[in-house]
């Protein structure tokens, strides 16, 4: 217990925990839709694609203000999602190839710009790679405020457009017949995902964002067959892994928060995979075993009656 009292006396620790929890909630909510659209890898792609935007924002403005970085990242993330949509729509390239292509080429351009910055502005670029690898321990109150506001806006938009997003995930053709602008909604979902990714990038880094968008949603899918429940459970799992990760990394020295949050989310996913009531592996094994036993009894009874 002394650990917790000590830990909470540190003023920044609480802010870090609030930040990671907010991040878990917003990416859990949006991740459910990405998961159901079978775009689980989009978080990884958008997080990599943010690099050229961040570098360009720095090259143009010359300031290390997180807000300009965020705008740059949103612009290049949106461009990346447009390229993915266009390449799959106007050529024979499949979606997974388009994702990989955009990821590697955008990141390559970002690396080129980064080396340009390193060669021209000596020593001034040190904030840039922090943006990519994430530093949740360095979060301060103002960062959390920005993150909180954007998380609330994201959740609000999702709540207002819940019906439209639902139809987009499950039956886009039917939605088009009903007169919903499906292409626009698809783009809007991508845009919301871009904001969620960019929002978390500074705190979490690329790989953590990729995990936070997909792992809680994939875990939540095991517990329910209803979208509204799934979104709530996914947000809960995201928040829980944020809290667990922050506490654990506070207990171990020299440990950055990001990877621990990923491991916490993965553990929650594995628990769901094994133990979930209907779709979980163990309950499936039990059901299969019972079924086989029943069949055996039936066949032996049938044989006896024949004899």
């Amino acid at each position: 217990m002394t650990f917790f009292t000590q830990w909470f006396q540190e003023p920044n620790a609480l802010w870090v925990m609030i930040g990671t929890t907010l991040l878990g909630i917003s990416s859990g909510v949006l991740g459910s839709f990405a998961f159901l659209r079978k775009r689980g890898l989009i978080g990884d792609v958008l997080a990599h694609a943010a690099l050229p935007g961040i570098c360009l924002a720095f090259l143009i403005t010359g300031s290390k203000n997180p807000f300009t970085f965020m705008i740059g990242a949103i612009v290049s993330g949106t461009l990346a999602s447009l390229v993915i949509i266009w390449v799959t729509r106007y050529s024979r390239i499949k979606e997974d190839t388009a994702l990989g292509l955009v990821l590697s080429v955008f990141f390559g351009i970002g690396i080129v710009l980064l080396t340009q910055i390193q060669h021209s502005h000596n020593g001034n670029q040190s904030g840039l790679d922090k943006f990519l690898f994430g530093q949740s321990a360095a979060l301060v109150e103002s960062d959390i405020r920005v993150m909180g506001i954007s998380a609330v806006i994201l959740i609000l938009i999702t709540f207002l457009l819940f019906k439209e997003l639902k139809i987009l995930c499950f039956d886009p053709q039917f939605g088009a017949i009903l007169g919903f602008p499906m292409r626009f909604l698809d783009l809007l979902l991508m845009f919301l995902l871009v904001i969620a990714v960019v929002n978390g990038l500074q705190a979490a880094g690329i790989v953590l964002m990729a995990a936070l968008l997909i792992t809680p949603a994939a875990a939540a899918r095991y517990w329910t067959e209803r979208l509204d429940h799934m979104v709530l459970i996914s947000a809960g799992i995201g928040a829980l892994s944020g809290i667990l990760g922050t506490i654990m990394s506070g207990m171990i020295e020299h440990m950055s928060t990001g990877p621990i949050i990923v491991i916490a989310a993965t553990c929650l996913f594995l628990i769901s995979l094994l133990l979930a009531p209907k779709r979980g592996l163990i309950s499936r094994w039990i059901r299969r075993y019972q079924f086989q036993k029943k069949q055996q009894i039936r066949t032996t009874k049938g044989r006896e009656s024949l004899e």
Partner: peptide, 26 residues
């Protein structure tokens, strides 16, 4: 075992990468 393909991929690689980073910092 019924995990969606893209989810299986991302869950696995993010978890292993995070494990690697943790090992390095330990």
């Amino acid at each position: 075992n019924g995990v969606q393909a893209d989810a299986a991929l991302s869950v696995t690689f993010t978890a292993l990468f995070a494990l690697g980073v943790i090992l390095i910092s330990l």
